[in-house]
């Protein structure tokens, strides 16, 4: 572990001021949100910032709100814990709350922000698959004004996004969604908590009547490709078909075939692929089961069908 080199921390009160600080002080600056990644990057990975611009004093970046059209706006500085316990999110998209609740510990989630997690572009980020299946958009403040990008095209590679130097991620917008939308996020990791996802699978779907015919479905995978990805082949398997164990299994197989996992100290690529297959199936079946009330935490994971 390395101790940090000296650097100054600025605390602007507005986005404008933050951008100006960044222009004024030049290269080598980093924006600070929750700091749970930045502090570790400095200590463990040899990152040497010349200065840091703390965004936490910018009021407009925080908060979670629901618009009249049903869209949700998550300020980039909303903490994971806020997303986890937000009433509106747990009512509308319980699987998104849960995905936020899978990150680290409560201590981490009280600091880590949803914007920071997205901007850092970690392949295993837990909230990202859940946001992908909600077709979230990301707003950034750039030198040419505000820009909106679909989350899916936001990531370019591990740690790389479409944001340029000096850009600030300001909010995440979840577009209006059907009240009948059902979803699920499964984090597969060896311990019940405190791990990085070996595999993350999110599913959101709409079905027709009691027949469980799939009208619309979105599936996203985390930790099994350079950037979190939509599993479109798997989605295609389900559309207009009855969702049952057999079709879910086939969708799982499709998802396994389209992901590109790596082998590392946590798991082998082959195992990750199998876990994509199994957990995609389970996420789909869990989603159609709906979300029963107050299940003990351990039972909330992986399978309820």
């Amino acid at each position: 572990m390395k101790r940090p080199e000296p650097f100054e921390i600025f605390q602007p009160a507005s986005i404008q001021e933050a951008r100006e600080l960044h222009i004024h002080h030049g290269p080598g600056g980093y924006f600070l949100a929750g700091g749970t990644d930045l502090a570790i990057a400095i200590k463990e990975k040899g990152l040497v910032p010349r200065y840091v611009v703390d965004l936490k004093r910018i009021g407009s970046l925080s908060g979670i709100r629901e618009n009249a059209d049903g869209s949700l706006v998550l300020g980039a500085l909303a903490t994971m814990r806020e997303v986890e316990i937000s009433r509106v999110i747990s009512r509308r998209f319980p699987f998104l709350s849960q995905s936020a609740g899978e990150v680290g510990s409560i201590q981490i989630r009280n600091r880590a922000t949803i914007g920071g997690n997205i901007a850092n572009a970690t392949p295993s980020a837990d909230v990202v698959p859940a946001l992908l299946v909600l077709e979230a958009q990301v707003t950034t403040s750039t030198q040419n004004g505000e820009k909106q990008v679909p989350l899916e095209s936001f990531f370019l590679g591990p740690g790389k996004t479409v944001m340029e130097r000096g850009d600030i991620l300001t909010e995440i917008i979840i577009p209006p969604a059907s009240a009948n939308l059902r979803g699920e996020y499964i984090k597969f990791s060896p311990r019940e908590m405190m791990d990085l996802a070996y595999v993350g699978v999110a599913v959101a779907l709409l079905t027709d009547g009691d027949e469980n015919v799939c009208r619309e479905v979105r599936i996203a995978l985390g930790a099994v490709s350079p950037v979190p990805m939509r599993a479109r082949k798997a989605e295609a398997v389900l559309v207009n078909r009855v969702i049952n164990e057999e079709s879910a299994e086939r969708a799982g197989e499709a998802a396994a075939s389209e992901c590109t996992p790596i082998s590392d100290v946590r798991a082998s690529a082959a195992y990750r692929r199998h876990m994509v297959r199994v957990n995609t199936k389970r996420a789909i079946l869990n989603a159609v089961c709906g979300r029963p009330g107050n299940l003990p935490w351990v039972a909330r994971r992986e399978r309820r069908y």
Partner: peptide, 16 residues
């Protein structure tokens, strides 16, 4: 040693 951290060296947590 590839996992010299509590992130990758897995002590049991209270939930395990």
């Amino acid at each position: 040693v590839k996992n010299p951290s509590f992130l990758d060296y897995h002590l049991v947590t209270s939930l395990d």
